[in-house]
Design a protein around this nucleic acid. Structure first.
Ligand code: FES
Ligand code: FES
Lengths: 144, 144
DNA sequence: ACTAAAAAGGATAAAAAGGTCTTAATATCA
DNA sequence: TGATATTAAGACCTTTTTATCCTTTTTAGT
């Protein structure tokens, strides 16, 4: 469904979000451990997230990553997915036709569209604070 | 969502199914042209489909691929997806945790599960004849 | 039996995804 | 100001996916 990079990106963002809720800034090493991801690869992903203004990075000692409180409400999952994987997942044809076209639909178009739209709707309506709060409460986890 | 191989596999299967409806057998070259896929790669995919008993292959002059009429009803989309991509798409964790576990769910588990289940349900309930019939009628297409 | 037409199978190549390493830039603080 | 801790950036490596090519096997038709 999502690329590995995108999965790490969501997990990392949520971890940073959860810590930001508590006013804490986290460094790469901490993030990679918390979400059980390869450190160097995670660094790349965090850079990309920062360039897309999904997270904020601070260099130097006592630096790290954080998310402004205001952003916890405005940033939705879809922003992360679009930044990492583009929009093929929820806009592209399920059978790989060059474009999903209701006028000349592929055989699964009608059935597939429903699922794709539900996915997109979920991504559009889910914000970061909501998911980070579950994490804080301990009802969800970021690694196993 | 699905790998390229899986997308070609579904398209190829449906093309063969449509022709089988009309009692015709089709060869590789015809299939690759019809679904706009690389010929040699498609050959590999057809082999895999044949090994999984999704299609039937006949060697020699006037050989090709076909699907027994009976199979058009019993073979569901899920069989193709499982043969090509395994079950990660509709059983795996959306955030890449080693296993999707309702007892220790990832932050998107509850929202994601709904979509995954709807996808699985769609794949389980959709048979080949249904989709091939749409193709025959001309209401859907396999390439653009 | 011979020939030609098909699929099957194996080796290889190219591209994309996943991941690592090294150096540069930046900020903190003694 | 210099030492150090941190992220940024780019080059590089590895694995998987996608794709091609060549040879072998099977079979129909003559
Ligand atoms: S055309 Fe294939 S999903 Fe719309
Ligand atoms: S644990 Fe992530 S989807 Fe179920």
């Amino acid at each position: 469904m999502f690329s590995k990079a995108c999965q790490y990106a969501i997990r990392a963002t949520l971890f940073i979000a959860q810590r930001s809720l508590e006013g804490e800034r986290v460094r790469l090493k901490t993030i990679a451990k918390a979400i059980d991801s390869p450190e160097a690869f995670t660094a790349k992903i965090l850079q990309q997230l920062a360039r897309n203004k999904i997270i904020h990075s601070i260099k130097g000692p006592s630096g790290g990553f954080e998310i402004a409180d205001h952003d916890l409400d405005t940033i939705r999952l879809i922003k992360i997915v679009e930044a990492m994987d583009g929009d093929q997942v929820f806009d592209g044809c399920g059978l790989g036709l060059k474009q999903c076209n209701a006028a000349k639909p592929c055989p699964v178009h009608n059935k597939f569209k429903i699922i794709r739209e539900e996915l997109k709707n979920m991504l559009v309506t889910t914000n970061i604070r909501e998911l980070a709060t579950d994490l804080s409460v301990g009802s969800t986890v970021l690694r196993m």
